[in-house]
Design a protein around this nucleic acid. Sequence first.
DNA 1: GAGTAATCGAGACGGTACGTCCCGTCTTTCC
DNA 2: GGAAAGACGGGACGTACCGTCTCGATTACTC
Lengths: 186, 186, 186, 186
Amino acid sequence: MARPRTVTRVHQAVLAMVGEIGFARLTMEGIATRAQVSKQTLYRSWPSPAAILFDALLASSSAPNGEIQVPDTGQLANDLEALLLATVAEMNDAAHDTMLRAVTAEIQTDPALATDLRTRLLDPQLRAVAARLAEAGVQDPAAITELLYGPMFHRWLLRTGPLDTDWAQAHLQRVLKAIDWSTSSP
Amino acid sequence: MARPRTVTRVHQAVLAMVGEIGFARLTMEGIATRAQVSKQTLYRSWPSPAAILFDALLASSSAPNGEIQVPDTGQLANDLEALLLATVAEMNDAAHDTMLRAVTAEIQTDPALATDLRTRLLDPQLRAVAARLAEAGVQDPAAITELLYGPMFHRWLLRTGPLDTDWAQAHLQRVLKAIDWSTSSP
Amino acid sequence: MARPRTVTRVHQAVLAMVGEIGFARLTMEGIATRAQVSKQTLYRSWPSPAAILFDALLASSSAPNGEIQVPDTGQLANDLEALLLATVAEMNDAAHDTMLRAVTAEIQTDPALATDLRTRLLDPQLRAVAARLAEAGVQDPAAITELLYGPMFHRWLLRTGPLDTDWAQAHLQRVLKAIDWSTSSP
Amino acid sequence: MARPRTVTRVHQAVLAMVGEIGFARLTMEGIATRAQVSKQTLYRSWPSPAAILFDALLASSSAPNGEIQVPDTGQLANDLEALLLATVAEMNDAAHDTMLRAVTAEIQTDPALATDLRTRLLDPQLRAVAARLAEAGVQDPAAITELLYGPMFHRWLLRTGPLDTDWAQAHLQRVLKAIDWSTSSP
DNA sequence: GAGTAATCGAGACGGTACGTCCCGTCTTTCC
DNA sequence: GGAAAGACGGGACGTACCGTCTCGATTACTC
């Protein structure tokens, strides 16, 4: 629908602005002005600042289809640790933190965005981790994935404690204890 | 600060309105009109609709200081199951769901509200559960509490799956496996 | 210029729309949509909804060059009465009323349309009446024409009173009294 | 409703702007900006630029209730000539011309403004003239008033000819011929 | 009958204004 | 003398049209 030139300008504008003034002060009007684009053009393609931001994030991401790389060295514990530490690093990155909080808040209100986020980002990511677990012979891999990510999400979103390397490693040990193995020990 | 009569009217108004039109459409203007109170009076006591709602929730709650009752029959597994099922029921209650989501979204933006929520609601609750775990001889009770609540929060907020009794019971089993005991086995 | 097929569709659309939504809500965009014609095509041929409407009126009129038939039975008073009553009937016709008011309003702003209206509709009409008066031996026929039509226009446009048969006949009597005759009395 | 200070600023702005850019380019938005007033304040008091302009005209007029002074020297012909020439002068004044044309066009669309104009400006004016005629013994003074003003209005609004002193005097002679006197000659 | 130009529909686009909602401040009025 | 009532400047909302501008796809003349 929208011309590539238009989309590019909007994405650049919204990414720059969210860094400068924060998500809460993003407005359709402001983005239109900054992107040198008319409000109508904005509304033709996106219903809200959150939708624009999400789109911009996906487009600028290295994996626009939401795929993530789960390391697979054969050593499950090592692989999961690498995965967790990468996620922790991402959550501690100011830009990512801001944007993920904004989108998380927004999906509480906006069902369309919620669906989008789930199908295009969240589900593929969780499924990839669960697949790695299943490959290693973990029983109920989806539940273990939840056990892995849930506490991290809780700690991060509600700021109940620091999200650092030490915590992540201790957390991983607890999760590993909870695993049921299909045939042999890990 | 404000007269008791005023506070009462505002609380009633905001609780009624959040049920009727949802949190996202609460405005200071609307609350003032509904509560038959001047905008000036509202602003004198609260900075935002979220703050008013939070205040109203605390005031209307049976435990205004945020305390919760953790069952203690001596049987840890049974007690935790009761606790989890109670929380699941609460999350599945439409009114609670709406308000908790709204407040969760809001604290991503409003640091003052975030602090308030954490110190007056969240922390006391988590501490109470951790205390029960500690009493039963669980090592690192705060981490196990996180392991208990984190996945539930993740599943609920991001709607990655149904939050029902079956899930809660299976989840509890996994968490129990992750526990280190100080002296004897469970 | 434009293809006949295009012109026809535009004329039909504009005449239908002015009846349905009134002149004030005619837009180039709306006419284009209704006529299944692109905006570009519209702008190529007409500068404004008023111009389109005026064009459509002329095209649909029985006398596209603006000529009117002034009755000539030899009895001036009778002929003028017939003329006046016909005009009164026209003014009381809702469709005519709407369109004439719209065009009258528009020419206060749009000089090109004003010139068009005057040369293609108004002047020929007034000249035809003046010619009939001159033939009957009336001195200064243009002024008498003005005396005849001016009050009717005033009463109609400003709605200072009903425009009916009784008024028209009484009015005619007053105008007749004002006439100077070139040779003999009437 | 609106504060005097606000009303003053709006009136000044609209009168200045109509002189600078013409009525057709007046917008609520532009007036608000120029008057240093918010759009909401404007809309609270007036529905359209035409209504503001009309209000400003009445307020700035020497006779805010629409009354006019009809000269009364006892010599009807002289008095009417003075009246006509004054009106002609007014119509030839650029500012008056612009504003009267704008309001005349507007009332074709806006019934509320039409009523306002008629009751507050037009009717009082016509009644005053009719009263002067009645006093002089003229039969059906309202009709004669219409005969006096109608052609002038027609000539002015449709620009069918120059509106000057010569025409006005000749026109007056014709109207005087049409008068019926109740008892004695003028 | 094929080429070639004019004409068209469709609709994206930068813009301006619309009329509304709500913000947070300020003033007036009343009890 | 504290509160209701509400006017106010301001900013953003989401929509409607404006007039311009590519696009391909007909059309309809020319060779």
